[in-house]
Amino acid sequence: MGNERIEDFFKHELLPVSRKVKEIRKAYFANDFDETAPSYFVNRMKISMNKDDFENGAVSGPNNFEKQLESLWMSQSQYELITLKASLADLAKSLIVTEELDEDVSPFIYVMF
């Protein structure tokens, strides 16, 4: 059931956004070298954490998740993603699982990549 919903989201929500992003030639990150750049470092806009940064990171419930996604993407001017917020919150709600402590290999090991 979970995989079906993920596949459904992937096909009907993510891929259209992916195509749109490619159409407008927007890239979230570079994939190859830039011989002309003097440095690949990005200067951080936020160099330290304040109280709000510590307090506002945790997600509490799907509604809150949707609002936080919107707020994040608005702040980044990445408006093309905002259409995904409601369906992502629904998807997340449907996927909430209790961690299985007896599994030999946790599925969460794959998150790194």
Partner: peptide, 21 residues
């Protein structure tokens, strides 16, 4: 989103782990 169609396997795994828990 950047990878598109080829990221399906990756997305399926990541959804279960990140969104799942």
């Amino acid at each position: 989103i950047s990878i598109g169609e080829r990221s399906k396997e990756q997305f399926t795994k990541a959804c279960a782990s990140v969104l799942g828990i």
